[in-house]
Nucleic acid binder design. Structure first.
Lengths: 104, 104
DNA sequence: TTCGAATATTCCTTTACAAGAATATTCCTT
DNA sequence: AAGGAATATTCTTGTAAAGGAATATTCGAA
């Protein structure tokens, strides 16, 4: 359960969300991300750190540079979680009535 | 795009996440949620406010009480978003190689 | 019409975290 | 070996937001 919260927390920050949106096109270096998003390099590095710690991105060092790319697992897990709600929307034709009866 | 961020932000807070997990079983009053989660009533009300503002829950007042229940739309939208990543995982057999070639 | 229960709101304090600035690290090139 | 590029880290500061305590509101029941 903690993983989902970690994923959510990482994605909930606007700049990190944007980074993820950028990376979906393909792998990018820190500098490229900073340029695209008009952010300063240190902040990008810090956000990438959070994304990396949460498993959302993977880094591959090439010489001087670090190439970041998305990692599928956390996304898939989050989607799986959301999928478990699907039953609820269909299943219950609004259990509210039922609840009100039970309520005394 | 802002809606997704709003949804993510609302879900990323542990107590709110727990509230959502509770509500998937069925509608609940503020007091019931507070009891289950061993939280103080005001904090629960405040978290429910955030969830309500972000459209994740709906409230139905019955006399003294307020019954909160999940709202499907934000969940569906978030899942839709996650679904747009699916192409990426399948589509690209790791475009990293490609990237490295382009990189000079 | 007052009382108590359920809930919301306000104000204050505290904490988490993002940005800024400066510096450290790593690696290529010469 | 030295210098410069790309990136990471550290320290500080500012701010948003969560918790605590008290109070306001709303409603049913007596």
């Amino acid at each position: 359960m903690g993983e989902k919260l970690t994923t959510l927390h990482a994605l909930a920050e606007p700049n990190r969300f944007h980074i993820v949106e950028l990376l979906r096109v393909g792998p990018l270096t820190v500098g490229e991300i900073a340029d695209s998003l008009k952010l300063r390099q240190p902040q990008v590095s810090k956000h990438l750190r959070v994304l990396s710690d949460s498993g959302l991105v993977e880094v591959q060092p090439i010489a001087n540079r670090r190439i970041y790319k998305l990692q599928s697992q956390p996304f898939l897990e989050l989607e799986e979680w959301l999928d478990t709600f699907r039953n609820i929307w269909e299943d219950r034709f609004d259990r509210l009535d039922e609840y009100l009866k039970d309520m005394k």
